[in-house]
Design a protein around this nucleic acid. Structure first.
Length: 393
RNA sequence: GGGGGUGUGGUGGAGUGGUCAAUCACAACAGACUGUAAAUCUGUCGGCCGAUCGGCCUACGUAGGUUCGAAUCCUACCGCCCCCA
C-alpha cells in the first residue's frame, strides 16, 4: 500500500479525479490496472523531458500494474499542429517507421523489453470513415475545444487556428476509447488532450479514466522548459555519454534540482541534500553529480565515469581529448578554406571572423593571421573554441 | 459577397523611396573572467573576392511595373488576420 501511494508523489503533478481515488482503485481492483503513455514519433529523439514519464512507468510496472506504450504513428504521419503557427510538415510512412524503431531503442533504456505492451494508433484511426469521425466529433463542443490555453492565446493574438487542429485532441482522445484504458499518464502539457480522452471514454463507454500528469522539466527561476525540442536545446537519450555529460554541464545552475528530481531515480533524500549543499558549495560539483547520475542511467557506470574524466580533462584542465577527429590537410589551402573543409566553420567569412576573434589555435598557439596559410605537418592539432578539435593525419 | 489589415533574417519584431545586409530582443558563436560548455561582461552574427579601408553578388511572400534608385510606391497573384453580410 505504501508503495502505491508513493507512486503519486515524486514525478506526479496532478491526478484526476484525485490521488486518493487512484490509490483506492488500484488497491481495490482484482486485476492490475493498465495505464498508457502516448508518444508521437515525430523525430528521432526522446529527450530527458520525456524520461520523467518513463521513470514513472517503471515504478508503476514495478508495483505490479500494466503499461501500454502507445505509438502515435497515425497522428505523426498527419503532422502535429500543436506547435507554432506554421503547419508542421507531415511525415512519410518510412520516416515514422524509422523514428519508431529509434524510439523503442531509447525506451528500452528505461523500460525492460517485454515489460510493457506496444500499440499503434493507426490500427484504429486508420480504418475510420468520415461518418465515424463526425459521430466522434459530436461528443465534443467547440466551446470545450477553445478553452484550451493554446487556442485562447492564438485567438487573442489573432494567429490562425486551422480546423484540423481540433482533430488532434479528438484523435488522441479516441486512443483512450480504443484501448478501453484504465489510466493515462503524460506530461503536464498534455493535460488537455488527456482530459479529452477522459471525456470521450465517459461518453462512449461510461468508463472513468484516471489522468496522471507528470512534472515538466522547468527552470524554476524562468519557468521555461529546460528541454526545448523546437529550439534544439535538449538532451537526447541517444546522445553519447560524453555529449550527454557536456550538455548537462552546460545547463544553467537553476536546472540542477529539477533534473535531479525528475530525470533520475536517486532517493528524494539526496535531492534535499543537494538543495542544502547548493547554498554553500560550488554548484559545479553538484551539477557534475547530476550529470553523472543521468549518464549512468543510460550508459552505465563505466561510460559515465569516463565521460566525467574526459569533461574534466578538456574543460577544467584544458587538455586535449582522448580521441580527436583526424583530417587531411590540403597543401595550398588557406586557413579559412581549411577550416571550412574540416567543418570547423560554416563559411570562409565565418572562419575569418573566428580567427580575428582569437578562437583558432594550432598546437595551443593562437592563430592571428588568416592570410598566411597554415603550414601543417602530421600530428598537428587545430582547436576552434573550447570544444572543437581536429588532428592532421 | 463587401470592407480593412498583414507577409521581413533561426525565432520574435522594427523599418514605409536612397545613409538597409536591414534598429532591437532571444537563440547561436567567440573572447574575457570564473566555479563548468553556469552566471556576468565584451564582441561577432548572408555569401564571395581582395591582406582589416573596400568591391561584388544574393536577400525583405511570388511575379511584373514605376524610378537614376524599392524591403519601402503601383498592379496581379499567393498566404494569413479582423469586421460586416
Amino acid at each position: 500500500m505504501a508503495n502505491i501511494e508513493a507512486l503519486f508523489e515524486r514525478y506526479v503533478h496532478t491526478v484526476i479525479p484525485s490521488k486518493e481515488e487512484a490509490v483506492r482503485r488500484i488497491a481495490s481492483s482484482r486485476e492490475p490496472l493498465t495505464v498508457y503513455l502516448g508518444i508521437d514519433p515525430t523525430g528521432p529523439d526522446i529527450h530527458l523531458g520525456h524520461s520523467t514519464n518513463l521513470l514513472w512507468l517503471r515504478e508503476w510496472i514495478a508495483a505490479g500494474q500494466k503499461a501500454v506504450l502507445l505509438i502515435g504513428d497515425f497522428t505523426a504521419q498527419i503532422g502535429d499542429p500543436t506547435g507554432k503557427d506554421a503547419a508542421r510538415a507531415s511525415l512519410t510512412r518510412a520516416q515514422v517507421e524509422e523514428n519508431m524503431a529509434s524510439y523503442l531503442d531509447q525506451v528500452h533504456k528505461i523500460l525492460a523489453p517485454g515489460s510493457f505492451q506496444i500499440a499503434y494508433n493507426s490500427d484504429w484511426l486508420g480504418p475510420m470513415t468520415f461518418t465515424d469521425v463526425v459521430k466522434l466529433a459530436s461528443h465534443i463542443t467547440v466551446q470545450q475545444m477553445i478553452v484550451r490555453d493554446m487556442f485562447q492565446r492564438r485567438l487573442e493574438a489573432g494567429n490562425p487556428i486551422h480546423l484540423h487542429e481540433f482533430f488532434y485532441p479528438l484523435m488522441q482522445g479516441y486512443d483512450s476509447v480504443a484501448l478501453n484504458i484504465d489510466a493515462e499518464v503524460g506530461g503536464n502539457d498534455q493535460f488537455f488532450n488527456m482530459m479529452m480522452g477522459r471525456e470521450l471514454l465517459q461518453s462512449l463507454k461510461h468508463k472513468d479514466k484516471l489522468v496522471i500528469t507528470t512534472k515538466l522539466l522547468e527552470d524554476p527561476t524562468t519557468g521555461k522548459k529546460i528541454m526545448n525540442k523546437s529550439e534544439g536545446r535538449y538532451v537526447s537519450l541517444r546522445d553519447s555519454a560524453e555529449e550527454m555529460f557536456g550538455k548537462i554541464m552546460a545547463m544553467p545552475d537553476s536546472a540542477i534540482i529539477p533534473l535531479l528530481t525528475y530525470a533520475t531515480t536517486v532517493p528524494l533524500a539526496r535531492v534535499t541534500d543537494a538543495e542544502r549543499r547548493l547554498i554553500s558549495e560550488n554548484p559545479k560539483n553538484i551539477k557534475q553529480e547530476v550529470a553523472r547520475e543521468i549518464v549512468t542511467l543510460y550508459h552505465g557506470d563505466v561510460a559515465a565515469r569516463d565521460a566525467q574524466d574526459s569533461f574534466e580533462k578538456i574543460f577544467t584542465r584544458g587538455e586535449l581529448p582522448e580521441s580527436i577527429q583526424e583530417v587531411s590537410s590540403v597543401s595550398g589551402n588557406s586557413w579559412p578554406e581549411s577550416l571550412v573543409a574540416w567543418e570547423l566553420a560554416e563559411s570562409k567569412a565565418a572562419a575569418k571572423r573566428l580567427i580575428e576573434q582569437g578562437a583558432v589555435r594550432l598546437n595551443g598557439e593562437k592563430v592571428t593571421d588568416w592570410a598566411t596559410g597554415p603550414n601543417l605537418k602530421s600530428g598537428d592539432v587545430i582547436q576552434v573554441g573550447s570544444r572543437e578539435f581536429r588532428k592532421v593525419k
